[in-house]
Design a protein around this nucleic acid. Sequence first.
DNA 1: AGTAGAACCTGAGCGC
DNA 2: TGCGCTCAGGTTCTAC
Length: 308
Amino acid sequence: MPELPEVETVVRALRGVMEGARIARVEVRRDGLRFPFPQRFGPRLEGREIVRMTRRAKYILATLDDDATLLVHLGMTGRFIVEAGEGFGAPGRHHNEEGTAFPHEHIVFHLAGSAARPNARPNARPDASPGARIGYIDPRRFGIMDLVAPGGLAGHRLLAALGVEALGPDLTRAYLQGAFAGKRAPLKAALLDQRIIAGLGNIYVCEALHRAGLAPGRAAGTLAGAGAAKALDRLIGAIVRTLNDAIAAGGSTLRDFAGPNGNSGYFQHDFRVYGRGGQPCPNLACGDMIHRMAQSGRSTYFCPACQK
DNA sequence: AGTAGAACCTGAGCGC
DNA sequence: TGCGCTCAGGTTCTAC
């Protein structure tokens, strides 16, 4: 579940449990995910308090009380499952009958009980997570976990190259005019490029392009000219509205994803084009069908009549 | 320089 | 039931 709205949903859910809590113990069950875990990953986390949970693009950032940062990317299939301290809730979710871990649970964070957190921040809920257990599950292991030294966040190789935050104040007409100028790459590819706008993924690019009435195959550079200012404004508005609507819906749930609280998002019911090849265009006046095509190896869904 | 395609992994779904 | 094929929310490296 890994585009910006899903990551934001996860951060909000984890914030209520982890912010102000202390990490008592970490189970590290393999050497790494997409990349190897840093040296002494678990021991360096143990005993630390999580001061703040934030998000940058699709990255989850947990600031620790020693100013180091735990950086997490969910890849394609990464997810967290939170269980409150009292035994194991939701039996069978990720433990089998013998109580052994789900095969793809690679990391488990055991938080200290509330009594062990005298320094909990005012906005932390002291009794929300008595010794909560937070498991990280990721079958395909495209996810990332790293521990960034104090002051090293801005220069981190994964964050340094990111473009403007999709829901941030820097996503402006002027910025995109500069970024798209002279680009012959398809608009779809330009929007997926995290170096330009950080946070969009395949689903929300398709959705935003349909809302904006712009064709995914159109050269990005054609939106950079002064004559395309209105179209560019439409695109920015569509991106922001699509993402905000998705966040409000708790993200999108494909297949069996459930959020950390066991809840699933429901924005997938609001998809206008994604996964709807062969179905009628949602624009009532249109009457055409949603088409599916491959762009740089990924599925693009669009309405050839509405999107120009 | 810029772009398609493969690669990294596993699981689900479908047709036969 | 089982096999083989395609596809999947992301990112990065290689080859034209």
